[in-house]
Design a protein around this nucleic acid. Sequence first.
DNA 1: ATAATAAATACGCTTGTGCTTATATACGCA
DNA 2: TGCGTATATAAGCACAAGCGTATTTATTAT
Lengths: 100, 100
Amino acid sequence: MDVFEAVAEPNRRHLLGLLAERDRTAGELVDSLPTLTQPAVSRHLRVLREVGLVEVRPDGQRRIYALKPDGLQRIDDWITPYRRYWRNHLDALEQHLENR
Amino acid sequence: MDVFEAVAEPNRRHLLGLLAERDRTAGELVDSLPTLTQPAVSRHLRVLREVGLVEVRPDGQRRIYALKPDGLQRIDDWITPYRRYWRNHLDALEQHLENR
DNA sequence: ATAATAAATACGCTTGTGCTTATATACGCA
DNA sequence: TGCGTATATAAGCACAAGCGTATTTATTAT
C-alpha cells in the first residue's frame, strides 16, 4: 500500500485530521470514530504507520500516535505540475467574467 | 468513486500525466499503456471522466481526451494544512544540522 | 451494402480491502 | 498472583477493483 492509497480511505483521512490537532492515544482515536470497532481503527492506524504517515510511542499500556506528514510530500510533489493548469483555467474563467 | 480513489491508481496517474502534455485520442492512450488491454484503458478513462478529471470530445470515430484538472483542487485543499507541518519539520531538521 | 476501424460495454474471474467477532499480548494494579 | 484495561492480531466474510476475452456500437471507407 502506498501513500496515495492510504489517503484514499476517508476514515484514514479523518484520523490524520485528528492527529494534526494533537497527538492522541489509540483509544482516543477509537472513540473518535464511533462507527468503527476498535480492531478496525487499529488496522487503519497500522496502514498509516506502514506508509510512514504516523508514528507511535508507547506510554505504559497506551500507544500514543503522532502525525508524521512528510510522506504527504510525495502527493504534493505529484500534484504540483497540475496546479498551474487549474490556475490557468481559473484565470480564463475570471477573464470571461470580467469581459462580459 | 471519488477523486482520491481515482488518483490512487498508478495507471490512472499515468494517463493524467500524458494528458497534461497534450490532448490525446483513446487509441493513443491505449498505445501508451502497453501492459494493459484496450478495454482496461477505456475503463480507467471512464473513471477519470466520472470524477471530472478528464473530458472527451468526439472527432469522427475517435474520442479525444483532455485534462480537466480542477478536481485535483480538492486534494490540494485537503493537503494544504499539512503542508506547514512538514515545512516545520524540515525547518527543525535544518536547524539541527546547522547547530552542530 | 459490406467490411474495417475505434471505442465502449458485458461477463466472469481473481485479488485485495474493509469490516466484525474472537482471541492474543502487554501492562498496571490490588 | 491474578484481574482489568489497552491495543494488536487472527480468522472469516462481503464487496468492490482491476483485469482479460468476447461482444456491441458507432463511424469511415470501399
